[in-house]
């Protein structure tokens, strides 16, 4: 589950120029790790390529490497089955989570980094402790509570839950980011007469923008990929997010599993993540490894 991505910060010294002990000759290095990298990417690439086979060709024994004929049949079937609706759900839930998690993390990160209020240590500990207690183990009660509030069967409910998933990492990251900004920057702004919130927004946020990007990315992947909560907390097909729809595509009528349609559904679920990752990987990698917070 997404928990594996939760990375507490750790002090990292600035990367040194490297001395490069050549423990492997270049040719061997590139052969071995090039092939390995290919192996990592190949399943995803083949998934995308294969989605353009016809449904019949997709279910063929033995499998064909490339589509013998370019076909949009699987896509057509998915869209006919109303998949667009679930795509909209996933996009909505993800957008809501990214916005809420980012805003709340920035505010709280700023609060924890820059203010000395009572209960500060305790509250920070409470937020961090959620990383130690798995949400999977509170599902029954979380379900009852959301149900009481009318938030099951509601995308807003999922947004709230996913936001909480993303908050510990987000707040941790933003607190570290704000701590790293010299106090003088903020003081100068305040002397200039700016309010706290406007200082935060106009002066500090641009400085910690890489950290914000990391938090937003983390929230994006959390919300887009989550399965168990979505499986349990939504009842109506019209509210299912993509991962849940996949599970339902698997159990087709009378044992008639359409592999092409199922795996094309997987393309819908995987490709946005990969695309965003490829575009913004700098923030993602740096953020997870403690670089981005330094700005």
């Amino acid at each position: 589950m997404s928990t594996t991505l939760t990375v507490p910060r750790e002090r990292v010294a600035a990367p040194r120029r490297t001395l490069r002990p050549q423990w492997l000759p270049a040719a061997a290095f590139y052969t071995v790790f090039g092939l390995l990298a290919l192996l990592f990417v190949a399943p995803l690439a083949w998934l995308v390529v294969s989605s353009f086979k016809s449904s019949a060709e997709f279910a063929q024994t033995p499998p064909t490497l490339l589509p013998t004929r370019f076909s949009l049949e699987n896509y057509q079937r998915l869209l006919d089955a109303g998949l667009w609706r679930n795509v909209v759900n996933s996009v909505g839930v993800t957008a809501g989570t990214v916005l809420a998690a980012t805003v709340l993390s920035v505010l709280a990160g700023y609060g924890f980094a820059r203010f000395r209020f009572r209960l500060r240590g305790l509250l920070f500990l409470v937020i961090l402790s959620t990383m130690m207690i798995p949400f999977q183990s509170i599902i029954p009660s979380l379900y009852l509570i959301l149900d009481e509030l009318g938030l099951t069967n509601s995308l807003l409910g999922l947004v709230l839950v996913y936001t909480v998933f993303a908050l510990p990492f987000g707040i941790f990251t933003m607190r570290a980011a704000f701590t790293a900004v010299p106090a003088a920057v903020e003081e100068a702004a305040i002397v200039d007469g700016a309010g706290s919130l406007s200082t935060l927004w106009r002066v500090l946020v641009p400085i910690v923008a890489p950290g914000v990007a990391t938090v937003a990315l983390y929230a994006f992947f959390t919300a887009w990929n989550e399965f168990l909560a979505a499986l349990i907390f939504t009842t109506r097909q019209e509210q299912y997010t993509l991962p849940v729809v996949l599970a339902n595509l698997q159990t087709g009528a009378g044992g008639t599993l359409n592999w092409g349609v199922l795996e094309t559904g997987a393309v819908f679920a995987a490709v946005p993540c990969i695309a965003i990752f490829l575009i913004l990987q700098r923030y993602y990698v740096a953020g997870l490894t403690g670089g981005a917070v330094k700005g």
Partner: peptide, 29 residues
């Protein structure tokens, strides 16, 4: 997208959550 809560609403909902869950145990029939 109405699933996008604004901070004010979020805070209000969060407060309501805490309040409501306290009574959740007495009201689940």
């Amino acid at each position: 997208m109405n699933t996008t809560p604004r901070p004010r609403r979020l805070a209000a909902v969060a407060a309501a959550l805490v309040a409501a869950t306290l009574t959740a145990c007495s009201n689940t029939g």
